[in-house]
Amino acid sequence: MAIKVEDLTFVYNEGTALEQRALDGVSFEIPDGQFVGLIGHTGSGKSTLIQHLNGLVKPTGGKIYYNGEDIYSEGYSLRQLRSKVGLVFQYPEHQLFEVDVISDVCYGPRNLGLSEEEVRERAEEALRLVGMKEKYWEQSPFELSGGQKRRVAIAGVLAMNPEVLILDEPTAGLDPKGRDEILDQVEKLHKARGMTIILVSHSMEDMARYAERLLVMNHGRKAFDGTPKEIFRHYKELEQMGLAAPQVTYVVHALRERGVEIDEDITTVEAARDALLAVLRRA
């Protein structure tokens, strides 16, 4: 098992009037190579949770194990952990600072103390992985478009060669094309390299399409944990949490109510198309 979270609790501004319980007794395990989707309404504790996973925040209570080792035990190198568990923040393009694209991507691996050659090699590889063409490498990151900036920022984390990649709403503010490109690249990383992915997103369609497992957060607690099909069966409870199921799931449910015999666990448009065609053929 790669990541194990045990009874994690985090309280902001403890002991003041501004006290706020962001996480409350959260436990789960994420095995190597899983693609996990993390959903929850704004303020449900998702962002706080993922910042714990690479040791950026110290929990108020509870433990986190990475490959069986307690990451908050004394002498555990958090820096080492951060190279293994890559975290891409929301709007990661806001953290770019270098004069050109390639140097910005070099920042991460250079902090790991690698040789200059290796740093460069990793940066180039990461930029290729996110599909940034060579002609952009020497440009200032501030001259790029929003989608390209974001790819450079993601490359900056990938260049650290992480085993686990956590992305906090990587598609926020992108157009549909940019969104699909980024998510397809993430899926490629997952499939080709067996990278563990934790994806935070508000798009239930994306979750149904990419995630193998969904974690649902609600008011700092883990509300559901299961495959997307299992989770979206609870669409009524999800709605009470300010979430929803994919649009197509609603269509499927409406069809079933009108007597169409179709599997209720359909969560993607493609699956719905195939199922409907099968129904029509039978008829």
Partner: peptide, 13 residues
């Protein structure tokens, strides 16, 4: 705070 954390996630010290 956010940028600091983001750079720390990239190994900054």
């Amino acid at each position: 705070d956010k940028i600091m954390k983001a750079q720390m996630a990239r190994g900054a010290d």
